[in-house]
Design a binder for these strands. Structure first.
Length: 550
RNA sequence: GCGCCCGUAGCUCAAUUGGAUAGAGCAUUGGACUACGAAUCCAAAGGUUGCAGGUUCGAGUCCUGCCGGGCGCGCCA
């Protein structure tokens, strides 16, 4: 990567001139404006205070030394107030092009993670109803992040935490029970905070089919049956939706299992030993304020039941202490942000570095239909289901749109736009570029250009402005991958692909690939193939297909 | 009231984590297919980065205070 190369050269040069300057923080970056070269550094400005020399003088000294490396640098300039600007020789970009052709789909997969074990927990929706649009965003994000981290050398495990316990589950069971009664002709009173969705009727029907005598059973038992069966049915539905969305998990982790395996008990015991639990108003509290939480939290309610938090403490204890993950990434809806400190406090209580837990808060999804914003609530039964969205819009477009924004910003999902198969829809813009390249190769094949040996190509034939721009853009890919991995930001890849596609379409419309000049044709085919490889890798990291024909 | 996120072109969002003249897409207007796919390309226009201070060579980005929006603030999950 050229950026890194420049950085190394700068460090080396400074060491030779002024000795080892420890902890020097400086930037090497791509200027927005091309008149400042391909890359620029502020190193002289940063050194000014330490060396007590005018920055221009420092910059000039460094520049004159680096000008000796003419294979890499075409030109180096120094400008006020002390920036050093570099123009990179196309030799360098051509070397990179060859690397892409050599490594193919492995290109860019550097070992950033050093085999560190990462657990990505995402979606983890309660099995109380079908997945909706908001879960879809989390699913696309978590899955893409997993792909990116795997690609960059992390050992990734994808996990879905099933909240198959607690109050909400009881309400689910009772909701189904009531609907079953209703279906059997009984008049019922349906409480405001119960699950009102249509799907509850479907489940009730299934329960009645399997247990015709349900309503003559003892109520407690009947509700228990409803709860069990509802959970199973809904979970299977969730699983199916996710698979259709190309999201596959390594583990489905049940909250109940934490109780069956006595993990919760074990963890509470440890906290008690550490003197971090006390009793107040008939409940047991964890002293989370000692670790930066706003208030202490209940772990055993006055009715003897645990809370969701209690399970979560055990779950995360298990993640770090027993399964020994180096990093745990939790992808949550932004409405859970108040929960972060509490969980980090629990980790600290166990002397686990809370930095190891990375909570990604994903902002809400607003559905736009006919210019109207639709809000979503599982309880009220008002939501657009993920499966509907996939059916109407398609997996590729849905994933691409979900991954086109930073997690920090709320996302407006415009169904009409997503469904349109035209220019407005960005996913096709990228896929079309890929398909176009495939089509060129199809044509080349017909013309008898079959087996091309890339070693013999005269790359110096690539001289057009658009060709050089494409070469530069291809070189940037490595940097984008690193940045996306380091900042957990798949959207950076989405953006990059759109930019690469734009440049490719521009090139395509200005220059022919298949020409009379055979050696030029070979060089251009090589450039196209490199683009195709990058499109394929990039789309794959988003979980979007790269079709050869559209 | 307190906490978190956000405020950038008419709309939806970027901006290399403090860099030089703030960029894309959509929408609008006008143009380009008798050569590899027009799901494409070219051009025009669009801005006091919510407001006010501060930090420094340099601020959309950092600090403080307001204004506006979203989300939280349970012995729910």
């Amino acid at each position: 990567m050229i950026k890194r190369k420049i950085r190394e050269l700068l460090k080396e040069t400074i060491k030779n001139f002024w000795g080892d300057i420890s902890s020097l923080v400086f930037e090497v970056e791509k200027p927005k404006n091309e008149i400042y070269g391909d890359y620029a550094t502020n190193i002289a400005l940063v050194l000014k205070n330490k060396l007590k020399l005018p920055p221009m003088e420092i910059a000039e000294k460094i520049a004159s030394k680096l000008r000796e490396k003419s294979f890499i640098f075409l030109k180096i300039e120094v400008v006020t107030p002390g920036f050093i600007n570099f123009w990179i020789s196309s030799n360098y970009y051509i070397e990179n092009l060859k690397k892409i052709l050599e490594f193919k789909e492995k290109y860019g997969s550097i070992n950033l993670g050093k085999e560190k074990k990462v657990l990505i927990e995402f979606v983890s929706a309660n099995p109380t109803g079908p997945l909706h649009i908001g879960h879809g965003r989390g699913a696309a994000y978590g899955d893409s992040l997993a792909r990116i981290l795997r690609f960059t050398g992390y050992k990734v495990v994808k996990e879905y935490y099933i909240n198959d316990k607690g109050t909400q589950m009881n309400i689910l069971g009772e909701s189904v029970y009531l609907r079953a009664k209703e279906l059997s002709g009984e008049k019922i009173q349906f409480p405001e905070d119960y699950y009102k969705g249509e799907y509850i009727y479907d489940i009730a029907k299934e329960v009645l089919a399997l247990y015709p005598d349900l309503l003559s059973m003892e109520k407690e038992k009947a509700i228990e049956i409803c709860k069990k069966l509802a959970t199973k049915i809904i979970l299977e539905d969730i699983k199916k939706d996710l698979e259709n969305f190309r999201v596959f998990y390594d583990n489905w982790y049940s909250e109940s299992s934490l109780y069956e395996d006595e993990k919760v008990e074990e963890v509470l015991e440890i906290l008690k030993e550490k003197n971090l639990i006390y009793e107040k108003e008939k409940a047991l509290w964890f002293k989370s304020t000692l670790f930066g939480d706003e208030k202490d939290r209940v772990v055993i309610r006055s009715n003897g039941e645990t809370t969701y938090f209690t399970s979560d403490i055990a779950y995360h204890y298990e993640k770090f202490i027993e399964r020994n993950f180096d990093i745990a990434i939790n992808v949550w809806g932004a409405d859970h942000h108040g929960y972060v400190n509490r969980l980090k406090a629990a980790l600290q209580a166990f002397e686990i570095d809370s930095q190891k837990l990375k909570v990604i808060l994903i902002q809400m999804v607003n559905l736009i239909e006919g210019g109207e914003r639709k809000s979503m609530s599982t309880r009220k039964g008002e939501f657009v289901e993920l499966k509907e969205l996939i059916n109407e819009v398609g997996v590729d477009a849905t994933r691409f749109i979900f991954l086109s924004r930073s997690a920090d910003s709320p996302l407006d999902f415009d169904i009409e736009l997503a469904k349109s198969k035209s220019q407005e829809n960005p996913v096709y813009y990228v896929q079309y570029a890929h398909a176009r390249i495939c089509s060129i190769f199809e044509k080349a094949k017909k013309n008898g250009l079959n087996q091309i040996s890339w070693e013999d190509v005269n790359w110096n034939k690539l001289k057009e402005k658009e060709e050089i721009e494409l070469l530069k853009k291809l070189e940037e890919f490595q940097e984008i991958i690193e940045s996306a991995a380091n900042s957990f930001a798949p959207y950076k890849i989405t953006y990059y692909l759109l930019e690469l596609a734009k440049q490719f379409h521009e090139y395509y419309s200005k220059h022919r690939v298949l020409t009379e000049d055979l050696s030029l044709t070979y060089a251009r085919l090589g450039l196209c193939l490199a683009c195709k490889i990058i499109f394929k890798i990039g789309l794959n990291l988003l979980g979007v297909s790269a079709p050869e024909k559209m």
